[in-house]
């Protein structure tokens, strides 16, 4: 297959390109014009073509899509204000989908996120799967910019399916971790070199980056995945405490402080009440004391990868311990 992969030089994109090449595909890797890819081991692979464009340049994108069998769309902006993220995530996707329609490329593996789910109204320790409700338009305003823009992005994917007969699969990976990202946002809140751990017993919806990359490529190959929405998490998910303990055996740790989930939940609830009661809800609070954002990161829930395994016939290749060993070792992971 000829795959076009957006966000190819990003944390996840690098692994997806490597996996695509390893599985024998030709890959068009879309990177932004000024990106330096010379340090990525696959940059000079024969079956790789670098496409240097900004996704909002639709005309160039249409030309790049000629002959492509499937698109894996990873590119998104996770930092900056709402307008930065809207431009880099929503408008870039809009441009990509218009270019795909023009180039008559219909197969799309759209990478979404667990951030589109509703958490605050979900019961603790209940199961979060593909049938769980998404955050509503009325409530999404209380979530971070990433959730807001990814939710709009999913709407665009569905429209592409209905308006252009797009063959779309939406993948929602949990927290993707790997060598470049081990002390992740579901463990706690970062304050400089200090990590305030929030909870220890909650199960982490983790997806090791190599496992996740393989699932994305298998999805592109799979006819049966068309029209499906699939959550991607690993097997035998660790709790926050187990993850931290295993990681500390292998890697340097930031300075850690601890706050139980119930305490943090109460603080956030109190802060919310103060804001609504005395400040007309207009005060801007740090994310961890905004209940909708706090629940989205730390609420203890259960997760499953049953649907992914059934539809994709996929099995996460590496266990949690193996994933940490690979992440903390010096083995080259990005060879094509």
């Amino acid at each position: 297959m000829k795959l076009l992969i957006t966000g190819a030089s990003g944390f996840v994109g690098k692994y997806v390109v490597a996996e695509g090449l390893r599985r024998g595909h030709d890959v068009k890797a879309v990177v932004r014009p000024q990106t330096d890819v010379t340090r990525i081991p696959w940059h000079d692979c024969d079956r790789l073509e670098l496409v240097r464009i900004d996704l909002r340049q639709q005309a160039e994108l249409t030309a790049a899509l000629v002959g492509v069998d499937a698109v894996i769309h990873l590119a998104a902006v996770k930092s900056g204000d709402f307008y930065d993220q809207f431009a880099g995530t929503v408008m870039a996707t809009e441009s990509l989908l218009a270019a795909m329609a023009e180039a008559k490329v219909s197969r799309l593996v759209a990478i979404s996120t667990f951030s589109v789910y509703e958490y605050q109204q979900k019961r603790a320790h209940s199961l979060l799967d593909e049938n769980s409700p998404l955050v509503t338009k009325e409530r999404v305003i209380n979530r971070d910019e990433y959730s807001q823009t990814k939710l709009i992005q999913e709407e665009l994917y569905r429209e592409f399916g209905t308006e252009h007969n797009g063959k779309v699969t939406i993948l929602r990976p949990g927290m993707i971790y790997g060598r470049e990202y081990l002390w992740h946002a579901l463990l706690g809140a970062e304050f400089g070199s200090v990590l305030l751990r929030i909870g220890t017993r909650g199960t982490l919806p983790l997806s090791y980056v190599e496992n996740c990359a393989e699932a994305m490529i298998i999805t592109a190959e799979s006819e049966g995945a068309i029209g499906e929405t699939i959550n991607i998490v690993d097997d035998n998910l660790p709790t926050q405490g187990q993850y931290t303990k295993e990681l500390m055996k292998r890697a340097e740790s930031p300075k850690l402080y601890y706050c139980p989930w119930v305490v943090m939940k109460s603080i956030a609830g109190f802060g919310w009440w103060i804001n609504q009661t005395f400040l007309e809800g207009k005060a801007k609070m740090p994310g961890i004391v905004v209940p909708a954002k706090l629940h989205g990161r730390f609420k203890p829930l259960r997760y499953t990868n049953k649907h992914a395994k059934t539809v994709l016939n996929w099995q996460p290749k590496y266990t949690f311990e193996e994933s940490l060993d690979r992440s903390c070792g010096d083995q080259e992971l990005l060879k094509a």
Partner: peptide
């Protein structure tokens, strides 16, 4: 020019 942007702002 972006339909998504116009739609978001309108809503």
């Amino acid at each position: 020019l972006s339909r998504a942007a116009a739609r978001y702002a309108a809503q």
